[in-house]
Design a protein around this nucleic acid. Sequence first.
DNA 1: GGCCGGGGCATTTTT
DNA 2: TGCCCCGGCC
Length: 748
Amino acid sequence: MEQFLQQLNISQREAVLYNDGPSLVIAGAGSGKTRVLTYKIAWLLKNGIAPYSILALTFTNKAAREMKDRIAQMVGETTARYLWMGTFHSIFSRILRREAEKFGYRSDFTIYDSQDSKNLIKAIIKEKSLDDNTYKPSIVQARISRAKNALIMPEMYARDRELIADDRYHKRDRICEIYSAYWQRCRTSGVMDFDDLLLYTYMLFKDNTDIVERYRNQFRFVLVDEYQDTNPVQHEIVKQLAEEHHRVCVVGDDAQSIYSFRGATIGNILNFQKTYPESKLFKLEQNYRSTKTIVNAANSLIEKNKEQIPKVVFSEKETGEKIKLINAYSDYEEGYNVAARIAEMRMLRQYEYKDFAILYRTNAQSRIFEEALRKINIPYRIYGGLSFYQRKEVKDVIAYMRLVTNPNDEEALKRIINYPARGIGNTTLGKIISVADTHRISLWEAISSPLDYNLNVNSGTAKKLEGFKGLIESFIAANSTHNAYELGGEIIRQTGMFNELHNDRTPEGLSRVQNVEELINSLNEFVSTRIEEGREDVKTGDFLSEISLMTDRDTDKDENASMVTMMTIHSAKGLEFKNIFVVGMEEDLFPSEMCKGNPKEIEEERRLFYVAITRAEENVVLTYAKSRFRNGQWQMFTPSRFLKDIHPDYIHTSWKKTYKKTSYSEPEILPNPQKLLRIEEEKTYHPVVRQTIGNLSVGIIIRHERFGRGRILELTGENENAKATVEFESFGRKQLLLKFAKFEVVDG
DNA sequence: GGCCGGGGCATTTTT
DNA sequence: TGCCCCGGCC
């Protein structure tokens, strides 16, 4: 136990050990924030606190998973698995499913992603014959989302003077009406959008004393990561849960709050001590990531912000090199400079490609760097863009699965009612929507009983609708006998999607086939993992509730591949690289033009710059161009005001260093990076032998079909229930049900 | 129902 | 400039 605490510095240890009341842990960049959280949880567990009485909330699945894995290593998988650890959205959707009937939902409600929400909003705007230029779906969506995050229901919106006045000022005074219709439609469809998952949780707790009491009693400790990014609902829910015992620990860094545009309120962390007057404040100020120069430069920058919790981040690492500033005449040249610099640093100082990241303010900037890197054969990887689950063909299959789980799901139904084409066009769909709207029923109900609701279509169309209905019903029936993987296969075959996709021989068509195959594979993996863990029925609904809250970032595997990383600064938060290039350091680009004249937003941009710099361990290179081609025309730019915010002592300006083109070999075009990404690990085939407990003993090495090499730590149970606890080299500790587990013995 | 072309437009996006 | 969305046409 003592040794365990030795691994922490004094302030980390104090933060870990204080658990009697509310605490605020202000964790400077690179100061071991996650470490404090994991050790705190491990400490509680080692002191006999039951895992299910600890609630730990994060913002990404990845963060939750990584933390859980680390805790599992410290206290064992069997304990860690019962922790309530996950994203706000996944934890609360779990609670909402349990309590669904309390607020008029079914426990198998489906979830709209942002695109679904936007589509529905767009549809409502159209149905109301509003001009979609004044009522831009994205703006309306943002406004509704903002309202939900601020606990404002439609009827409250209508009474809110400020909101109404603001909408009127922008000539959008019917937003409130759209909001109300959107709310109603989601309810009729039995779906929730991301914001609903939080809002309904809040209402559930507010309106049902017995329920909130139950969870308050269960969650004796509440921990929240990245508190600077919470919005008002999240803040309120945490308050509801910690109401009685006040054992709440929030961790974050106000200097890294960069999501206010999505409704995050930095005030939550700034005012935490007012919310909980008896709270203790812990500051983690030692940065273990970066050189002194980088930390000092970042400090000198963030000093320029007014609103912040005072702290002095310091580094005990070497001084390191100054930050480099490179200018260029054009964006094209900027790209060239960066590529050349990377090549040079790699050659001269033995860096690998994966030690570099290029960070930019907007995704549009990536192209020029892609080209530049490609020309001199530097492998790269771009984050951002369309995620796997957002691809059309993947969403189509998932839409069927959603409809099976919840036939009332409007957006899922609209998506596939005529895909693959079955002669149900927009006219028919329009009629269905209008009938459904007048009777306040779902589209599915309108289709199911066309006569009851006077759905006025000709007999041919009626037949087609019946056929569609029959198809979905057959899937629903199959869902009770088939697992998620089997049903997935049924869906792509029975609908004709399989054939349709395979007939398309174009490269795009092939990639669509691949994507659908990947989805089916992941279904297979999902099902078999759970069966191995001893679960019996693994249904489509289980799969959906997991993946609807997942993003691409959770899927990617090949983190070892040595490539230069390119991404927006926003998506770089939480990551670290040896060398960071922050590019496009120009006024109107960074800080963004949109922030002009708004000091609060400029401060947020400055925090964004702070995040960018503090990603670096060893070197920071800042670049800017005097002109760039943007929005179809050449524009002149001046250097960003943020460059002057860094104390000049920490910057070395290397004006216009010219790299001779001849010093690099002739451009050989690299394969398309998308392809590079797709190259899968070479799969070696291992004969799969079903094992019984008799063949195994503690200590032997096995190779599992998916988890790879691992050592058996424990064997329990007999026959049908025989289980092995295995410590895998790259997947950590797992429990396998021998009846299903696929592995071979490597070393007896 | 699918394809083509014109017009409008153009931050950031953990779920 | 390039992408996306919509509407018109076959």
